[in-house]
Simulated scan of single mutants.
Amino acid sequence: MLETRIAEELACIRQAGLERSIMDLHFVNPVQARDQAGKTYLVLASNNYLGLTHAREVIESARAAVFKFGTGSSGSRLTTGGTFAAGELEKRLADFKHSESALVFNTGYMTNLGVLYGLLKPGDVVFSDELNHASIIDGCRISRCRVVVYKHNDMKDLRRLLETEKVIGQRFIVTDGVFSMDGDIADLPALAVLKKRFDAYLIVDDAHGVGVIGSDGSGTAAHYDMPGIIDLQVGTLSKALAAEGGYVTGKKIFIDYLINKSRPFIFSTALAPATLAAANAALRLLQTQPQKYLGSLWANTKLMRRLLKDGGLQVVEGTTPIIPVLIGEAELTMRFADKLRGKGILVSGIRPPTVPQGESRLRITVTAAHSEEQLRQAAQIITALWQELRQDEKKEG
């Protein structure tokens, strides 16, 4: 029976220490959340990089949209769900990303599925970084083209594969801009050389890049000062832009084609007016006050990385606010995260299959909204608890 099979699989998941569960939270501000029992936590696990979810301008824009346009969109963008707010946001996103056009999707995950499934055809070959996000992996799988995986950020390996793989149709290179688990940044200068050398199209998912890197916060291309190099830039509205949804920017001909061919776009109900208004307001704040928000984020990132390293933790090198602390074993990682939760700190414990066996980690993220005092106190607690856990491990060993 199906129930028996599922029960056996769940038992195996629990035995391996890989069981996942949902924790309901109510955010009282950008960096603190309360659970159903009323306990308040300092959150070092969100992607709200600029802390704009609680910005007055963002909240007021969303509230005004609800009163003016109602709570829902009532249909897909191609039927009754088209709103002025979506069109305004797409124009703003295209300008922000130095592209001709843009298209909004319901989630970042659906954006990658919609772009890859919509554009790639049998006969095409997509060269995909081995640490790309699950949405890229799934989009490649359903695209019906051949997928070739290259070693993470290894341009020599990518070049070798581009040279040796036979291609009937088009070549596509797809990569995260900022990788979600390690926080490192794609080697765009080398990718640009390979793209030109092998006449390939380059797709970059900037979900964790926008509002994080680049002098204006627009992501990977701005980080390297290389506008116009990326053919299609995928992004999300649910991280630094404090709302919900995803988008893609690129040449108008690509966007027009996706409007007509991307099934996840065509057959999805459009985002609610309040969501679009919130994203518009958050993007305006980033565009008009980049140094205010980016400066705070970068300073907090630098501080937290230093504090954790000084505390003896194995921090993966990098410059982004995604701070991986390598632990190793899944069970120890989750025990660490659980003990931190008991002390009022929420961090993400990451284990297989999200990361390889033996590379489980705490994924700590900081935001522009964290105070220096909060970060110093959190780092002190994390460091002290790690020393306790190591002593316990030695005793048990």
Score class of each variant (00 low, 15 high):
Glu3Pro: 00
Glu3Gly: 00
Ile6Lys: 11
Ile6Asn: 03
Leu10Tyr: 05
Arg14Asn: 10
Arg14Asp: 14
Gly17Pro: 05
Gly17Glu: 08
Glu19Asn: 07
Met23Phe: 04
Met23Val: 15
Asp24Ala: 09
Val31Gln: 10
Val31Cys: 11
Gln32Gly: 01
Arg34Met: 14
Gly38Gln: 01
Thr40Leu: 13
Val43Asp: 10
Ala45Arg: 03
Asn47Val: 01
Leu50Glu: 03
Leu50Val: 01
Ala55Met: 00
Ile59Asn: 03
Ile59Cys: 06
Ala65Lys: 01
Phe69His: 14
Thr71Trp: 08
Ser76Lys: 07
Thr83Met: 14
Phe84Lys: 15
Phe84Asn: 09
Lys91His: 07
Lys91Glu: 14
Leu93Arg: 12
Ala94Leu: 02
His98Leu: 13
Glu100His: 04
Ala102Cys: 14
Tyr109Ile: 10
Thr111Arg: 00
Val115Pro: 09
Leu119Ser: 06
Gly123Met: 03
Val125Gln: 06
Val125Asn: 05
His133Val: 13
Ser135Tyr: 02
Val147Glu: 15
Val149Gly: 01
Tyr150Thr: 10
Lys151Ser: 15
Asp154Leu: 10
Met155Ala: 11
Leu158Gln: 10
Arg159Ile: 01
Arg160Asp: 14
Arg160Lys: 13
Leu162Trp: 06
Lys166Ala: 14
Ile168Gln: 10
Gln170Asp: 12
Asp176Met: 11
Gly177Thr: 08
Phe179Asp: 13
Asp182Ala: 06
Gly183Phe: 08
Ala186His: 04
Ala190Lys: 15
Ala192Phe: 12
Val193Thr: 15
Leu194Gly: 11
Lys195Asp: 09
Ala200Phe: 09
Tyr201Glu: 14
Tyr201Gln: 15
Leu202Asp: 06
Val204Phe: 02
Asp205Tyr: 04
Ala207Phe: 06
Ala207Pro: 03
Ile213Pro: 02
Gly219Lys: 04
Thr220Ile: 15
Ala222Thr: 06
Ile229Cys: 01
Ile230Leu: 04
Ile230Phe: 00
Leu232Asp: 08
Gln233Pro: 02
Thr236Lys: 00
Ala240Glu: 04
Gly245Glu: 09
Gly245Tyr: 02
Ile253Val: 13
Ile255Trp: 10
Asp256Arg: 08
Leu258Val: 11
Asn260Pro: 00
Ser262Ala: 13
Phe265Arg: 00
Ser268Pro: 01
Ala274His: 13
Ala278Arg: 11
Ala281Glu: 05
Ala281Pro: 02
Leu285Cys: 03
Leu285Thr: 00
Gln289Arg: 14
Trp298Leu: 11
Leu303Phe: 03
Met304Trp: 00
Arg306Thr: 13
Leu307Arg: 05
Leu308Ser: 01
Lys309His: 04
Asp310Glu: 15
Leu313Ser: 05
Gln314Glu: 14
Gly318Phe: 06
Gly318Lys: 08
Gly318Ile: 06
Thr320Met: 01
Pro321Glu: 09
Ile323Arg: 02
Ile323Gln: 03
Pro324Ile: 10
Pro324Gly: 03
Thr333Arg: 00
Thr333Cys: 12
Leu340Cys: 04
Gln357Arg: 12
Arg361Pro: 03
Val366Glu: 11
Val366Lys: 05
His370Asp: 10
Glu373Ala: 15
Arg376Cys: 08
Gln377Lys: 12
Ala378Trp: 04
Ala379Ile: 08
Thr383Gly: 07
Leu385Lys: 00
Leu389Arg: 08
Lys394Gly: 02
